[in-house]
């Protein structure tokens, strides 16, 4: 698509959407949000970027193939479930640590890395589909 307006706005819009998606992901445990929604917002951002600059640009920006990202997410989610095995707890037991970084208590948990895994799977899997379909469009 060759629209000057879109090309001008797209970089700003896309970076805002990606930031927002991460924000939604991270606040998901206490406020509305989470991996599924965050992931979908990121996919939307990728699609817009692809429409504005072509799928090739998105692929270059991502560095990794989306399916690889999805695979990494699935692996992260599985490993998050397995961590508890090291402490003798059943699979998928949530574990928490609260290290103090720069004077602030940062709660970190395996459920959080699990949610990040969900986010990556959604971004990767659905992003891969959307990008492939857009790509075919460019060919035609």
């Amino acid at each position: 698509m060759n629209s000057l307006i879109l090309r001008t706005i797209a970089p700003v819009l896309v970076s805002l959407m990606v930031l927002f998606s991460i924000f939604v992901l991270l606040r998901g445990h206490n406020e509305p949000g989470g991996g599924f929604i965050g992931g979908l917002i990121a996919v939307a951002a990728l699609s817009i970027y692809g429409i504005a600059f072509g799928v090739g640009a998105v692929r270059r920006a991502l560095r990794f193939h989306p399916a690889t990202i999805a695979g990494a997410g699935l692996m992260l989610a599985t490993l998050s479930g397995l961590v508890s095995a090291l402490f003798g707890a059943p699979f998928m037991t949530g574990l928490w640590v609260t290290p103090v970084i720069f004077g602030t208590e940062i709660p970190l948990a395996t459920v959080m890395s699990f949610d990040i895994g969900v986010y990556l799977v959604v971004v990767g899997a659905i992003g891969a589909v959307a990008l492939s379909l857009e790509e075919e469009e460019d060919d035609a």
Binding site: F36, L40, V122, I126
Partner: peptide, 17 residues
Amino acid sequence: ILTAIVISFSFFAFLLV
């Protein structure tokens, strides 16, 4: 429903393709 939405979307995309 939250997971169902995402999964039904995946399958919708699959059927479409």
